[in-house]
Nucleic acid binder design. Structure first.
Length: 867
DNA sequence: GCGGACTGCTTACCT
DNA sequence: ACAGGTAAGCAGTCCGCG
């Protein structure tokens, strides 16, 4: 049996016994920033505002030393906003003139894109950011109609100085100088060549390429995790109260350092849970010492990673340290309203990053479904949380250490796997969004796009429009949505032609909506523009028109990013002549671009987007409908059988190469849209349902879309039976072979039914697993089954939070359901499960031109087997 | 008082 | 806090029924 002895660093642990004089110990933690006076190469990773010095500052990361340097603004840049009133008029505004934060006026000329004309504006300069906006009342933006008054000051600073977060800079005698990155001539030529069709915005495009191709440094980082004592096992201690002691903390560095700090408590056994070899286990008698040592260890790493550190770990540490009498300056943590930062560097909360829906779907292809460290870890690095059988507070020292350490290891590894993929994505997004890493990793895609567009406005001297002005000028939609309560009509789904179709080509438009925004010049300034002569340039299917005189910034930016992704990064990511590392890099960039592009249409229809402009979104969707409709017409004209289509794709039954070529060329020349062959199926099984099909590729791999058997809430036993059926269908090559397949499917259904009736399946197999999206009390209109189950769990004292996965089985009785953990196999309502078997299989049999009753010869499974 | 038709709610999915 | 469209199952309501 191994004991913890070997992990002890004997000397250190003796030292722990006698606490150094406290004040001296705290002194060690007092943060002394490294000031940037001369640096040869450092990356811009953060920005802030120093309230005492009244100066903006930047955080520059020097990767050779692994240190962060602080650089203070040397231009006396001040926060400001704009007014359309003249200085003379504003002079009469007493509240403004006498405002304690007001400094001075300056006259400026800006381009007002909403009106398409130059405007004279007055720049109202303030002494500090809060005076512009942010005070509970009486900020300058509250006393008059102001423009650009709700941009975060650090962002404002970054845009004005032309800085790009994530890019390298040097400092010479205190002066900050960008390090120009130039593309190597070979790459430059290759890009030019790939994009030769789009010469008009080549410069913009090459500028993006420079940002994206510029190498990313290695980040000296460590993951931190803590465990807190809790008197009630099922309850998470509150981070704002920080009532209970931190009993364990771990820190795992990318340099291999692994430390676990354990608080000595009474009646806790050492235990014999194994730990990784180089782990340093440090026991302390005093919780203050534990925090002190952890803080000291954190200070060595400029980048601190956590999983939910904003809301828990760092928040808890900060509040706990204060409670234990730490002087404020000795706590290397600062709490914001919704985040926690580390004073000496950068804190990245990976929970926030992985929780981001766009990241989850487009960057990681829905590989993880729940937003727990366990689920994300298992999905991305095949490494889940340590399983524990007891509450945290009852674990032995070694179990606790192993548990806590594992969390930090997973957290760190989530940023190291695949050649630090996650760090690279964050850097790429940081550069595209012109937003520091800490913000980009916490905020959603609509804020990234906002920041990208704001920066471009500033760069070009555009006045950033107020949301209410956009809305009052261009807030109206003209189409009616199919779904009640939606703002406008969306995409078309083609009625599927039920049955089996062999040799089906699936064509789709590459990035349809971004292409539309590019080709049709869509943006808040060009839709419903003020020019009489543009009014005839109508968006099909709507009364809206689009400007013919000015190019919209959105169209320009989204268009160039789209071209770069489709024609360069996507192609290079698949280029087998490149080595794996290079290909990977291209893949990372293309997926970051994908995340941004996929949202670029939706944001215009999202009220929370600061450039919200519903007719832009409506026009995009309308043009999409026009394009797919015209394409289907053309295909039919060419004599091709269109069997299905959805939004940007059409499924063509057995087309000739000639027909495909003609259709693709027609699309390019007539619609200005790039249509391409995306997939080629050996056969597709279409039921009568939309968004619901099974496609088998020539090599036998299968695409399953929308079928019940694939949905993640369905019981495991049914999923297994479903996939057995898929396995059989994947082997079918010809029409004739379906008969044989049907026989095999019949057997699967039969087996499934008998196992169910004879209660051969475990409760786990029978469990439905449904996410509860609100707290159980939040369901006032109806009480769905998973909520009933959740209520039962709550009555047993189990905490249920939004986002939890509720596992329940269907049972006989009034409620009809029970949580899996509280049910027994005898009370299972098999009839309900039989209905599920029926409907799951019917979906596929429907497409095969048969059904269960035909297959089995009876109308109901039950009747057939019982009879 | 009960069952069928209907609407609305909720979740999971597709593009 | 990116959008709209679709499938499925269940909850709840209304209506007819001497």
């Amino acid at each position: 049996m191994e004991t913890l002895e070997k992990y002890f660093s004997k000397g250190e642990s003796r030292e722990e016994q006698s606490l150094v004089k406290e004040s001296e110990a705290f002194q060690e933690l007092f943060y002394k920033p490294n000031l940037a006076t001369n640096l040869t190469k450092a990356y811009l990773v953060g920005a802030g505002y120093d309230g005492e010095k009244h100066l903006a500052f930047l955080k520059l990361y020097e990767p050779e030393e692994g240190k962060i340097y602080i650089w203070y603004d040397d231009s006396f840049h001040k926060p400001y906003c704009f007014s359309k009133q003249s200085i003379q008029e504003l002079q009469l505004n007493e509240a403004l003139i006498k405002h304690e934060g007001f400094e001075k006026f300056e006259e400026e000329e800006k381009y007002d894109a909403l009106e398409d004309k130059k405007v004279k504006v007055t720049k109202i300069i303030a002494k500090d950011p809060l005076s512009i906006g942010g005070k509970p009342s009486g900020s300058i933006r509250d006393i008059l109609k102001a423009w650009e008054a709700d941009i975060k000051y650090t962002e404002c600073y970054i845009y004005d100085k032309g800085l790009i977060p994530g890019m390298p800079y040097k400092v010479e005698n205190g002066k900050l100088i960008p390090i120009e990155y130039s593309l190597n001539p070979q790459i430059l030529n290759a890009i030019k060549n790939a994009l030769k069709d789009d010469v008009n915005n080549l410069d913009l495009l090459l500028n993006w390429a420079k940002l994206l191709e510029c190498p990313v440094p290695k980040f000296l980082r460590a993951a931190v995790d803590i465990e807190v004592y809790s008197p009630i096992a099922t309850r998470m201690p509150s981070a704002s109260e920080a009532e209970y002691p931190v009993i364990c903390a771990s820190i795992v560095g990318v340099d291999g350092e692994k430390k676990v700090f354990l608080l000595k408590r009474e009646n806790i056994q050492e235990g014999d849970a194994p730990l990784p070899n180089e782990t340093k286990v440090i026991y302390v008698n005093d919780e203050r010492k534990l925090l002190l040592e952890l803080f000291k260890a954190m200070l060595k790493y400029p980048f601190i990673l956590t999983f939910n550190g904003d809301d828990f770990d760092l928040k808890y540490l900060y509040n706990r340290a204060k409670k234990l009498g730490f002087p404020k300056e000795s706590i290397p943590i600062e709490l914001g309203r919704e985040s926690a930062s580390v004073i000496h560097g950068i804190h990245i909360d990976l929970y926030k990053f992985f929780f981001n829906r766009s990241i989850q779907i487009y960057a990681f292809n829905q590989k993880y479904r729940e937003n727990t460290l366990d689920d994300v870890g298992k999905a991305l690095i095949q490494f889940g949380k340590k399983e524990i059988q007891k509450p945290i507070s009852e674990l032995t020292y070694s179990e606790l250490a192993a548990y806590c350490l594992t969390d930090s290891i997973i957290t760190l590894n989530l940023t190291t796997f695949n050649d630090s993929l996650v760090m690279k994505i964050i850097m790429a997004l940081s550069r595209i969004a012109v937003m520091p890493m800490e913000d980009v990793s916490r905020q959603g895609v609509s804020n990234w796009i906002r920041s990208m567009l704001y920066n471009e406005h500033r760069k070009r001297g555009y006045l950033i429009p107020r949301s209410d002005d956009i809305l009052s000028l261009k807030g109206v939609t003209a189409t009616e949505a199919v779904i009640k309560g939606k703002k406008y009509k969306g995409a078309i789904v083609v009625e599927p032609l039920q049955g089996i179709h062999f040799n089906v080509a699936v064509l789709d438009f590459a990035s349809l909506y971004p292409s539309i925004i590019k080709v049709w010049n869509l943006g808040y300034e060009t839709i419903l523009c003020p020019h009489e002569e543009c009014k005839s340039n109508k968006v099909p299917g709507t009364p809206h028109w689009v400007c013919t005189k000015k190019r919209a910034l959105e169209s320009l930016l989204i268009g160039s990013l789209r071209d770069l992704r489709v024609k360069w990064y996507k192609v290079k990511a698949k280029d087998k002549t490149l080595n794996e590392e290079t290909r990977n890099l291209y893949a990372v960039i293309q997926s970051a671009l994908k995340v941004v592009l996929n949202a670029s249409y939706g944001v215009f229809g999202a009220e929370t987007f600061s450039l919200y402009c519903p007719p832009v979104a409506e026009a995009t969707a309308a043009i999409g409908r026009y394009i797919i409709t015209k394409t289907i017409e053309k295909a039919k004209e060419l004599g091709v059988n269109v069997v299905y289509g959805d939004t940007d794709s059409i499924f063509l039954g057995n087309p000739t190469e000639e027909q495909l070529k003609e259709l693709i060329n027609w699309s390019k020349s007539t619609l200005k849209m790039e249509l391409e062959v995306d997939k080629w199926y050996r056969y597709v099984a279409l039921s009568s349902r939309k968004k619901n099909y099974l496609g088998v590729y020539k090599d036998g791999t299968v695409d399953i879309k929308g079928l019940t058997g694939k949905k993640r809430h369905i019981p495991e036993f049914l999923k297994r039976a479903f996939y057995e059926m898929i396995q059989i269908l994947s082997q079918v090559e010809t029409k004739e072979e379906f008969n044989e397949a049907k026989e095999k499917i019949k057997k699967i259904v039969k087996d499934c039914y008998f196992n169910l009736k004879n209660r051969k399946y475990s409760l786990e197999d029978l469990a439905f697993k449904i996410v509860i999206s609100k707290p159980p009390k939040g369901y006032v209109k109806t009480t769905p089954q998973h909520v009933k189950a959740a209520q039962l769990l709550e009555s047993k004292g189990i905490e249920i939070k939004p986002g939890d996965l509720i596992s329940f089985v269907k049972v006989i009785g009034d409620l009809g359901v029970k949580p899996t953990s509280l049910a027994s196999i005898e009370e299972v309502d098999t009839r309900k499960y039989v209905e599920y078997i029926e409907s799951t299989f019917e979906q596929v049999l429907d497409a095969l031109g048969t059904n269960l009753s035909e297959l089995i010869g009876h109308t109901k499974l039950e009747a057939f087997f019982e009879g």
